[in-house]
Design a protein around this nucleic acid. Sequence first.
RNA 1: GGAGGGAUGCCCGAGUGGCUAAAGGGGGCGGACUGUAAAUCCGUUGACGGAGUCUACGAUGGUUCGAAUCCAUCUCCCUCCA
Length: 371
Amino acid sequence: MAITYELLKECPHTHARAGILHTPHGDIETPIFMPVGTKATVKAVLPESLKEMNAQIILANTYHLHLRPGEDIVKKAGGLHKFMNWDGPILTDSGGFQVFSLGKINTITDDGVEFRSHIDGSRRFISPEKSIQIQNDLGADIIMAFDECVPYGADREYTERSLKVTVDWAKRCHAYHKQTQTQALFGIIQGGMFPDLRSQAVEQTCAIDFPGYSIGGLSVGEPKEIMYELLDHTAPLMPRNKPRYLMGVGSFDALMQGVSSGIDMFDCVMQTRMGRNGTALVRSGRINLKNACYKEDFTPIESDCDCYVCRNYTKAYLRHLVISQEILAATLISIHNLHATLRFIREIRNAILMDNFLDFKLNFEKLWYNK
RNA sequence: GGAGGGAUGCCCGAGUGGCUAAAGGGGGCGGACUGUAAAUCCGUUGACGGAGUCUACGAUGGUUCGAAUCCAUCUCCCUCCA
């Protein structure tokens, strides 16, 4: 098996747990946050910086790399790790999210999805088998089943039908992929906003023997309370001896809630997108560095943060870079945001290991919600 | 000395009788961002608490029911010819 999960500790009061994910490119301490590098680059951030902030695994995207440069090029380069100069673990998303995010230019059939390339408008067909083939060529450590991420607001009938398709696709992905020493295929649990469909999804998806499972289709526009309820309903139903991955979620409060529900892995674009848009994440929320109040603020984003940015730059300088539209602003704020998130999840992990998770959580919530 | 062109809100700039508190940029201020079609998108930007009133298009005076827009004079700026 390419991936094995080692459970180290479970919180006696919540579903939180700490463990280690062994991969061909190294061990990952879970719970973990995974920076997103859609097009084989974590936008604006050097791999060296990712190493310094102790990023343990990063993401890339099947759909985007298939369109450009093409998986054949990546394969020729010697695989994704070599191509992008990242020797740690990599996870590729299957393109399932693009079925959702590019929904206006897609047509879904039972067999797969016809995409209109957002780059040149050409027709591209991705089936479960095609997605796996692309991901095999890309060569990430963890690859994902091809699914449909159901849009928020989808009714029961649509969600039910979509779930059937996603489960069917999961079986096809599983059949097509040879679980090798170097690549593990994860299944994805859908089911929209319906708890009983989520239960069904867990049952049907986990009946297929994947080395890990993820929850997809959350944080697609629903109120947070609904997401948290579904999360707390779904995650504990998933196999205890395998990693659980919540896709696309990464705000501090959501990480806390996710871990509490028993999630081990998270990814999110928010850290780098906000970094590019001038917003810095801090423990109690976020600050918009464009705001005039930082004009003469010669202190770091967070005084107790040990990231490269907080050690060397002030808010006044970062504000100046953002306002001047200097490219370094994107780099520096992204670095801080990723670092802050990784630090946060590391502290969560330590708290679990020290039998202190519940207190840690309560303290965090006091800070986060009482503003 | 002569001939012509121009002065618009924080800046640039459109507008040449009523639909103009005045297009469009920029700048300022604020907001959003969650498996990335995003270095993106949205709002706001004369004053007074509103549908309302007032103050505004270099200055002053005039024509008109009505003027940023027409006329006169003045002030300043630019171009060309001497």
